[in-house]
Design a binder for these strands. Structure first.
Lengths: 197, 197
DNA sequence: CGAGTGACAGATATTGAAATCTGTCAGCCG
DNA sequence: CGGCTGACAGATTTCAATATCTGTCACTCG
């Protein structure tokens, strides 16, 4: 946390520093004053760029979720692979990403879980994007005849709901269980079988 | 809460009264002294029958979960109905029971959710029983040729995991959504399709 | 004799006063 | 002028003193 040179104070820099401060102090202790101090400015300056602490935390949350969306988009857009393959790969990528985040740095993960809980609107948008990506994959599967679904958006949503245990942070504690891999494989297999033509 | 006549003090009476006190005061305020007062005895007497407050609360939790197990057992044991039917009916019965408990008396439901969180051992046994019941239904479906599964216990577990959104109390808030019925139907259909021969 | 009591010690929860934080804004300074 | 400051009021959090609860046990009383 370098006391920061006289670079211009941008929303981007504030967000980066806020993430750092959240990582260091945790969600309950991190204050706007801490962020301002890390940036070498007064806390009043932070309020020039974000109307409230809540808005600042919300923006951090959005940034974080956007990173996951981009990663998964790569799989969604891999139009050359058969849809059932992509579907499994997508679900596994989501699970792996979450499991590693939760396992590698549980405190940071807990911090973000708190942020998610206080920004349900942002989370809803994020979940809608993920379900939309699933919908794209299923849609292509239906076109190429490798998957079946009468109502594609509903099917996408069902796939997402059915695999909740492997991406909902509420279950993070169970992701360390030695049997979790088998459970994930079983649910994924069941779901993909359920979409067979 | 009648101050209670001079009936003999049994574990059963203590459990009933503890449930009442929990209902009335909630999980954080209900004390052993409250239970004793409601029974018209000293709190020392309660400790003759239960070694600790934790054990008392655990016993209440067990009783509560046992009631659900008995209700679902009726569907599991209805051997005349085809297995896919029973499977759907069982899942719907579980969801309906939980949803109504959560909707009719949210405070009481919250109380029990707290109790479940502090008695993970009891909950684990309960979940194992539910998965075992699912296993029985699937097993019979495999025998009669109406369902397919290479590893029945794993399939039972997968069905249970995939429908978690509709029985895990963590999701209780979402059970009031107007679209929850459609979501349940979609996941159930997907799962049952996944078990087709 | 044995179910029940109630005073007690240590653990836990509550409360309110003090400290800190959030959000504003008049003014400073480059 | 315009980005930044820092003192301030009201909201929130912290902390330590106080009150309550848990669990024990020597005792009572039917």
């Amino acid at each position: 946390m370098p006391p920061a040179a006289a670079e211009p104070l941008t929303p981007e820099r504030i967000l980066e520093t806020t993430e750092e401060v959240l990582r260091r102090y945790g969600p309950t202790k991190a204050t706007v004053v801490d962020v301002a101090r890390a940036l070498g400015v007064s806390h009043g300056s932070v309020y020039r760029h974000f109307p409230s602490k809540a808005a600042l935390r919300e923006a951090v949350t959005e940034r974080w979720l956007a990173r996951t969306e981009v990663r998964l988009r790569e799989i969604t857009a891999a139009g050359d692979r058969p849809a059932p393959d992509r579907l499994e790969a997508w679900l596994e990528a989501l699970f792996d990403a979450k499991r590693h985040k939760a396992g590698d740095d549980p405190e940071l993960f807990a911090t973000y879980t708190v942020l998610l809980a206080e920004n349900s609107g942002v989370v809803e948008t994020h979940l809608a994007e993920l379900v939309a990506q699933l919908g794209e994959i299923i849609d292509e599967g239906v076109s190429e005849g490798s998957l079946a679904a009468t109502d594609v958006p509903a099917a996408a949503r069902a796939v997402f709901d059915a695999t909740g245990r492997f991406h909902d942070p509420q279950y993070a504690a169970e992701w360390q269980s030695p049997t979790i891999g088998a459970e994930f494989a079983a649910v994924t297999a069941l779901v993909v079988r359920g979409l067979r033509p």
